[in-house]
Design a protein around this nucleic acid. Structure first.
Length: 462
RNA sequence: GGCCCCAUCGUCUAGCGGUCAGGAUCCAUGGUUUUCAUCCAUGUUACAGGAGUUCAAUUCUCCUUGGGGUCACCA
């Protein structure tokens, strides 16, 4: 069985890059009928926050990504880690290190001065004497001092590291007893049965350390997939300064989960020429063997395109439901079908959609000055009055075609071009020269509101 | 700086020794639309450079260059 996980540290919101690796892990598990876990890596008490952990869970909810079982918090697993640390200690595979922080810093400096690699010097590796007073020890693992460690990465291929270049006896438990990342990540993945680790490229370099832990504990090493980073326009790691990197910001901006997920799945992964993937298709078609090796640049133009695609293809009832989150309540509006059909072709985001709806629904309070000058000529009043008179007489006006017919009558009777009525009417109805078809707008707002807007624009003009 | 990874249109990508180097997005132009948007059509733009291997390299190897990641009692 395929078991994957997403293991963020709760130091902030769910990041767009994190979401992508989470999605990959999720899809790979789901495709295979496996399990996908969410594990919060909160071993560093100083930096974590519960709010951040909650924010991550919330984001998962919004996106409809589910995980198996409960959220796992590493902070609640201390006894487990303690047990394995003790085991390593007993077996002589780990040891207490009494080096003080000052001493460590000093060591660093001399190494830097000598242009050597900065690393722990193994001072307490084989220590039998009396420990120094006043130092609470950290625990270090005995890492191989020679030979090679090969990370069998399924994205990058075999990556060979020389122990001499990268390894030292790294700390697995701090002086306060809390275990460190490279230790717990290996322990948890092994204990949870995670056999496919999909994560960011930035973890590749410390994978050898985790392999050291796996081997010391006799655990089976999982398959690794190190997914390339997502960069900003400058080719650097994506950060807060690059605009929206918080997943929930996309909700606020009016993006749908479908669009965001579809956008992200195509960043670093592809299935031939296909661009549109439903969740079902993603689950069916995703395969980490098709993950790219190179980093990609974060550019949301395609996200806009996808979002408008999903909006256009969304059933109106669902759309109306979603729009309540953007301050637009349409439930009681009798022409909401027409309204949504008209505006969903025109919006890139749900937020825009809500604004477009309001532009139609609300009586204009201002008229675009330039547009007014351009479109509202001397004869416009007469045209609008003629149109208004016909409206007054007509009943049974429901559909856009009903209104269109009356517009045509005016055009024919007065022997004018369509623009002669369209332009001023557009100013009257919307206050500007662009927007949806006027017949639809009138059908949506109804006869009375149409008359009112015509009267208003004439009043304003004189 | 040491170690590691990466390199096809502006961007996301297809390609897996022989292709007019394909698609999408963006941009531009034209058509549709009373307008705008949608939609449709058309177009511009790419194999970082240099050596090999081969009858043949975007594709395999090496070097150079460029970019990125990582080097903590952070994750």
């Amino acid at each position: 069985m395929i078991v994957t996980r997403f293991a963020p540290s709760p130091t902030g919101y769910l990041h767009i890059g994190g979401l992508r690796t989470a999605l990959f892990s999720y899809l790979w598990a789901k495709k295979n009928g496996g399990k996908f876990f969410l594990r919060i890596e909160d071993t560093d008490k100083a930096r974590n926050s519960v709010e951040a952990a909650e924010a991550i869970v919330k984001a998962f909810e919004w996106l409809g990504l589910s995980y198996d079982g409960e959220v796992i918090y590493q902070s609640s697993r201390d006894e487990i880690y303690a047990k394995y640390i003790k085991q390593l200690l007993d077996e002589g595979k780990a040891y207490y290190c009494y080096m003080s922080k000052e001493e460590l810093a000093e060591l660093r400096e001399t190494q830097i001065a000598a242009k050597e690699r900065t690393m722990y010097n193994g001072k307490y590796r084989d220590f039998n004497g009396t420990p120094p007073e006043g130092v609470t020890p950290a625990i270090r693992i005995k890492a191989p001092q020679s030979g090679i460690i090969t990370v069998k990465d399924k994205v990058k291929g075999d990556v060979v590291f020389n122990a001499l270049d990268i390894l030292d006896d790294f700390v697995i438990a701090r002086a306060d007893g809390s275990p460190t990342y490279n230790f717990v990540v290996a322990v948890d993945d092994a204990l949870m049965g995670v056999n496919e680790v999909i994560r960011g490229d930035d973890h590749l370099s410390n994978t050898p350390k985790q392999i050291v832990v796996y081997e010391a504990l006799g655990f089976k090493i999982p398959n690794f997939y190190h997914v390339p980073m997502i960069h900003n326009h400058d080719g650097k790691k994506l950060s807060k300064r690059d605009g929206a990197t918080d997943v929930m910001e996309y909700k606020e901006m009016g993006y749908t989960p479908e669009a965001l997920l579809n956008f992200l799945v195509r960043l670093g992964w592809s299935y031939g020429d296909q661009e549109i993937f439903s969740m079902e298709e993603m689950k069916e078609l995703f395969n980490p063997k098709d993950i790219n090796k190179s980093a990609s640049i974060y550019n949301t133009q395609k996200l806009d395109w996808l979002n408008s695609h999903y909006i256009k293809n969304m059933p109106n009832t669902e759309l109306a439901e979603l729009l309540t989150q953007y301050d637009l309540v349409l439930t009681s509006h009798d022409k909401k079908e027409i309204l949504l059909d008209v505006i969903k072709e025109r919006a890139k985001t749900l937020k825009e959609l809500a604004e477009l709806a309001k532009e139609i629904l609300e009586t204009p309070t201002v008229y675009d000055e330039k547009a007014f000058k351009k479109a509202f000529k001397e004869d416009s009043i007469e045209v609008l009055n003629t149109f208004g008179a016909k409206l007054t007489k007509a009943d049974e006006l429901h559909l856009p075609s009903d209104y269109h017919q009356i517009m045509e009558e005016v055009v024919n009777e007065m022997n004018i071009g369509f623009g002669k009525i369209g332009q001023p009417l557009r100013i009257a109805l919307l206050g500007k020269l662009s927007g949806p078809g006027l017949d639809s707008v009138m059908a949506i707002i109804g006869k009375n509101e149409t008359m009112l807007r015509i009267a208003q624009v004439i009043a304003v003009h004189s």
